[in-house]
């Protein structure tokens, strides 16, 4: 019970101090809006293009929202040493880091539904398989957040967090099959595409919105969950090695 009091308070404190701040709310709204607008204009096909660009915009909203915020907030707290206060608390490191990342995960999920809500006003989303879409959104959010954690542990300055995030994010956007099918990628890039967590999330989103996923939903879920667990474990190991060294 005592651990959960700590967990809940870390989560609510992060929401108050970071995620519910006007700049971050506007980032969560404007960023997906800008992506949607950009791809909508680029497609030139009118309203019918909305559902085809929805998986990409949803995934990007999650990816950018979670990695940016988590990497920056954790690096900021590490820099001003308030993170030490958390490390001194009598709670297991695993629970502490889950508390720190839960806010970003929720922020990612909320971000994902911004383009979905916008699309719902413009086109009929009755054909979307929500039982696949929602788990995909949650797992992409978890994987992206843990990627942000991995980045935060690897850097020491806030600006480094942003630069290092882009090192992962941009290749992932173009290789994960959101905008170009993986089958259309050069042969030497295909293995790389399958080494990215977003590939499996994107496949699930494509499948949920307009069918035609490459891999089965359980396989995608399993691989994405394995990525989440792997990134979290590696981040915890790095925290122990770098921050409690």
């Amino acid at each position: 019970m005592k651990h959960w009091i700590a967990f809940w308070n870390i989560l609510t404190k992060d929401f108050r101090t970071y995620y519910l701040k006007p700049p971050n709310i506007s980032w969560g709204l404007i960023f997906p809006l800008a992506w949607t607008g950009m791809f909508f204009i680029r497609s030139g096909r009118g309203m019918e293009s909305i559902s085809s660009i929805l998986p990409g915009v949803t995934a990007l909203s999650i990816l950018f929202g979670t990695t940016s915020l988590l990497a920056v907030t954790v690096t900021f707290e590490k820099k001003n040493r308030s993170f030490e206060r958390l490390l001194l608390a009598p709670i297991p490191l695993e629970l502490l880091m889950l508390a720190k990342t839960s806010g970003a995960i929720l922020f990612g999920v909320v971000n994902a539904f911004v383009p979905v809500l916008m699309a719902a006003f413009l086109v009929d989303l009755g054909h979307v398989n929500w039982l696949v879409f929602i788990p995909a959104v949650v797992l992409i959010s978890v994987a992206s957040t843990f990627l942000g954690l991995f980045i935060a542990v690897a850097v020491s300055e806030v600006f480094e967090a942003q630069t290092f995030s882009n090192f992962f994010r941009f290749p992932m956007i173009f290789l994960c099959g959101l905008f170009f099918p993986i089958s259309a990628l050069p042969v030497f890039l295909k293995p790389l595409a399958y080494a990215l967590p977003l590939t499996y999330g994107a496949d699930m989103l494509h499948g949920a919105i307009h069918g035609g996923n490459i891999m089965s939903v359980p396989l995608n879920l399993a691989i994405l969950a394995a990525f989440c667990a792997g990134l979290f474990m590696v981040s915890l190991r790095n925290i122990r090695r770098r921050w409690i060294a």
Partner: peptide, 27 residues
């Protein structure tokens, strides 16, 4: 632990900082 530099949260009030620190100990 009282570190050599104050490491509380600048954006929280004094009362909220203490409340948050107490919550870390499960109070």
């Amino acid at each position: 632990v009282v570190p050599d530099e104050s490491n509380l949260y600048p954006e929280l009030s004094g009362f909220d900082n203490l409340g948050f620190c107490a919550a870390l100990y499960g109070m």
